[in-house]
Design a protein around this nucleic acid. Structure first.
Lengths: 158, 158
DNA sequence: CGAAGATAGTTATAGAGTATAACAATTGCC
DNA sequence: GGCAATTGTTATACTCTATAACTATCTTCG
C-alpha cells in the first residue's frame, strides 16, 4: 500500500498500515511498551526482566538445576551462567551441590532473595495493572489464551 | 506459588505458573516463537526483522527521511544508519538528497528492492498464516485490537 | 544580515541479549 | 572398563539497543 507519488514531498506522516496487518508486528510494538515499563519497574530492585524471571522460577521450583532453569527460560546454558552468577553474588540464591549428581547445582532462593522477590513482585503486579488497565478481566484472559495458543502451536514447527 | 519442600528432589518438571499470570510473560513467549519463525522465513531473502520493517516502511512512504523512519521504527537514529547503509549497499533503496533541505535524505525503494520485498512479503504472509492458523479471523482481529490498546494506553506513561 | 539554537545524519562506543564451539568433571550405558 | 551423554563453564561473536559528540545545514530572531 504505497502512499502518494514520490520524491520531494516533505512527508508529514509515516504510515505503517501494511505492517499493522501482521500480528507479529503488533505483538512486538505492544511488548516494547510493556518491556520498557517493566524495566523501569524493576530498576529500583536492581533486577532486569531476565533476573526477575530467574528469581521467580527458582522460588517456585526450589532445587532445580541450571540446565532446567535455562530450558524453562528459553536461554542457552552459557548465557544462564552469568544470570545465576549475578543472583548468587548478590546473595539472592544459592548454588548447592547435589550429592547424588555432583555435576549439577540445586538452586535455592535465600531469605533475602525471597524478600526482594516479594517486593519486586508487588511492583510488577502494579505495573501489570497499569498496562492492562484498559482491559476487562475477560479480555485479559482471552488475550493470554490466544497468546498461549500461538506459542503452543507455533512451537511445533520445523 | 512454591512447589514442594526443598532440596535434593531431582525435580522432574519446572512450573512457570506464577509468571503465566503476567500478560507480559505470555506476550514475550509468544513473540519469541513468532520472531524465531519470522527470522527463518526472512533468511532466504537475507533480511532480518529490522531490515524487512525498514524496507516495507520505505516502500509505503516514499521519500521519508531517516529520522522519520527511525521514529516510526522506534529505533535510535544512530542505529538506523547501519540499517539504511545495508539496504542501500544492496541496492534495495536509494538515499536521494533533497534540494529544499540538504541535511535530509529522501529514502526511496528501488525496483530491485520492490521485487525482493514482494517476494519476502509473500513469505511473511505464509508465515503469519502458519503462526495464526489456529485462530479464527475474529480472534485474530480481537488480538490485534487488544494489543493496540495496550500499546496506545501504555505509551502515555511517565 | 548574522549569531544562536535546533535538526539530520554520522561516528564511536558500550551494554544487554543471544548463539555456538570447545573444554573439564561427572554420570550412565553397555 | 570404556564410550557416549550431561552439567556447568569459558571464550567468543553477532545482533539490538542506547548515549555522547561531532559536522553540516536550517531556522529563528535580534
Amino acid at each position: 500500500m504505497p502512499d502518494d507519488a514520490a520524491k520531494p514531498v516533505k512527508r508529514t506522516h509515516v504510515s505503517d498500515a501494511t505492517l499493522r496487518r501482521l500480528v507479529g508486528y503488533n505483538l512486538k510494538r505492544a511488548f516494547l511498551v510493556i518491556g520498557a515499563d517493566l524495566a523501569r519497574t524493576l530498576e529500583p530492585y536492581e533486577l532486569r526482566m531476565l533476573t526477575y524471571t530467574a528469581l521467580t522460577l527458582v522460588a517456585d521450583n526450589p532445587g532445580l538445576s541450571q540446565s532446567q532453569l535455562a530450558d524453562a527460560m528459553q536461554v542457552e546454558r552459557p548465557n544462564l551462567v552469568v544470570i545465576v552468577d549475578e543472583l548468587e553474588t548478590r546473595g539472592l540464591i544459592t548454588r548447592d551441590r547435589v550429592p547424588t549428581d555432583r555435576r549439577t547445582y540445586a538452586l535455592q532462593i535465600t531469605d533475602e532473595g525471597a524478600q526482594l522477590l516479594a517486593e519486586a513482585t508487588r511492583a510488577v503486579g502494579e505495573h501489570e495493572n497499569q498496562m492492562m488497565g484498559g482491559l476487562t478481566k475477560a479480555e485479559e484472559a482471552a488475550l493470554i489464551s490466544t497468546l498461549n495458543r500461538i506459542e503452543t502451536s507455533g512451537t511445533g514447527r520445523s
